[in-house]
Design a protein around this nucleic acid. Structure first.
Lengths: 194, 194, 194, 194
DNA sequence: AACTAAACGAGACGGTACGTCGTGTCTTTCG
DNA sequence: CGAAAGACACGACGTACCGTCTCGTTTAGTT
């Protein structure tokens, strides 16, 4: 995720043990002290690595966390074609909500989105490496519905995606209301009915 | 915003001059150095106040910023009844988008939402003092539409609000795509058509 | 000790209750938290007085302490004439050591001497109001011995005083060895034998 | 003075440049602003070191000052045997007084003795690292005189040391009278005559 | 096998900001 | 009008992390 070596440089190779220990320590710490209490100093201490080793491979604590998250829950899951927008969208939403409703995952996502606001460079990486990949999945689903003529008029593909993810993120970030299947049903109703 | 004394306590009264200088300095600094570069130390120095004075009245820099924002753009604006959901909602969205599209306001909102994720106590205050007030305004508009029978079936009042604000915030936080009248039209189409 | 009124000024008179409460609180606090932990803030809080009231009457916490000490143990005690330097000096030393050996008195004296080094203005007041008065008492005793021809040659009156008080203070400040009658005997021996 | 390395610990070594800069800055500052005006903040700023670096190696500003003093005037100077108590003691006193009469040295000593009263832990270090070493030097001189039978009866070795240093310190701390060779003569007379 | 290069743990370094404490001044209200 | 209460500007405190920089050690190629 951080580099594509290919070559054959001399010198000691990157230690997979360190990498794993760092990512594991990060996940432990985020659960124990929260994102605000997470520090590179703490990650290094907990993992038994030196600070330099962390800085060598990740530009910020948010990037460590992003990679740690990726090791847990992979971001790209193909969506099988269930034959209709209603069925496809419902399945996608129920799966996605289930993931976000898991406490540690939801907390991490909130922290990363927060950091993306404060650190623009990380924001770009977060968009690229996470948000856009998720949009693509939903996008393919919507394109299939478009081919079937199931989409509402007057609303662009991109805006539809914004509405779906917007509602999801708004619940996560703002109201912190539960993400359940009822919300999935309502969103499906809103989009399919239009 | 912090207290409603009514009191007759002895002792020197809170200095309005200090309060104003602090809020003004905060707005200057957020424009100059951004939220990440904003510090209580810096606010105190720029405003000519002591750090203690800031800490006495606000629990965090985000709270200062929230109050500073409130002095600039008041949060509650009544929405006149234009006779139909389409007209009401479009006007509300265009006005709201126009505010959020202003660079300093949008930046500040993003920073506050970010901080709300990281600092749960501030999160509660932000919800209470800002987010819920905005929801109320939209809620009244939707209730009027409900009375007229203009609302889509199968979607609750709260979820409708989530969809509208969710899309708005998602654009602000995630895609950073422009908030223009076209988006307003699409949202109106989606909701009114359903 | 700080002022000699005589006057007929208008306005409310100085509150003796406040003065006493402040001095009493000071003695309590010095015992509880030591000189370093003693603050004007704390004295005011403990005594129920306002900080301003303390500042109005004493220039520093050391001055409060000096006056509090004076209320406890009066500084000038006449020394009866026992007929010889040996007897006079021994009595003076035993009495003086007994006072300094009392834990709170010794601690306070050490603190005041320390403060006198750090704050030159207080140093002058301490010398004037305390140290010189003590020297005078010993000086009179030595003068009587001089009249009797009991003093060693080659050592001035002032230097003799320096030697006696120097040894006393050095034990207090530096070695913190006990101040007992044996030391009195040795000093008497040294001076009378010479 | 703070540690006995010998070690083979990993990690970057202590920077001698920082140490020297800190001690030098301390001596400059004590001359410019006095002990009360001396702050760790100021020492760090003047020396170009970080505050943490100062705190890492010294527990208080007094300890920095003590070590800075030790780099300037070494504390242990052997006293040559001049053949008699009178000669030895006079030389010791004249040398010692000359040192203490130097304005910055005297000021620093006064400040350290003051701090030793206020901060008991530093008091122990001051006694151990400075006062006792000086006592040893004088002690050896007195032991030589004892071997020659030159000491007054009825006065212990330790008390003799107390008398000499007591008089010296009392002049420094209390009367602030000059430390000149006349005082040396008088002390020699007092002790040798007894 | 010797050499070179990089990664590693450890930890000191110059910094910045933190949140708190005490100072001495001021303003307000009460008795 | 004195004295309480308490807000204020100021400045230093000691701490926590930041991100960088040596150290000495370990691990891989490359000669």
């Amino acid at each position: 995720m951080t580099d594509q070596p290919v070559r054959n440089r001399p010198g000691r190779k990157r230690s997979a043990a360190s990498r794993d220990a760092i990512l594991a320590a990060t996940l432990e710490l985020i659960a124990e002290v929260g994102y605000a209490g997470l520090t590179i100093e703490g990650i290094a201490a907990r993992s038994g690595a030196g600070k330099q080793t962390v800085y060598r491979w990740w530009p910020s604590k948010a990037d460590v966390l992003l990679e740690a998250l990726a090791t847990k829950a992979d971001v790209i899951v193909p969506v099988p074609d269930r034959g209709s927008l209603v069925a496809d969208l419902r399945e996608f939403l129920v799966d996605t909500f289930a993931l976000g409703a898991k406490q540690p995952v939801g907390d991490t996502l909130r922290a990363l989105m927060a950091q993306a606001q404060v650190d623009p460079a990380f924001g770009d990486r977060f968009r690229e490496d996470f948000l856009l990949r998720r949009r693509e999945v939903l996008g393919r689903l919507i394109d299939r519905a478009g081919d079937r003529g199931e989409l509402p008029a007057g609303v662009s593909r991109e805006t539809l995606i914004d509405v779906v993810f917007g509602t999801l993120w708004y619940r996560l970030l703002a109201t912190r209301a539960p993400l359940g299947p009822e919300l999935a049903d309502e969103l499906v109703a809103l989009i399919a009915r239009a």
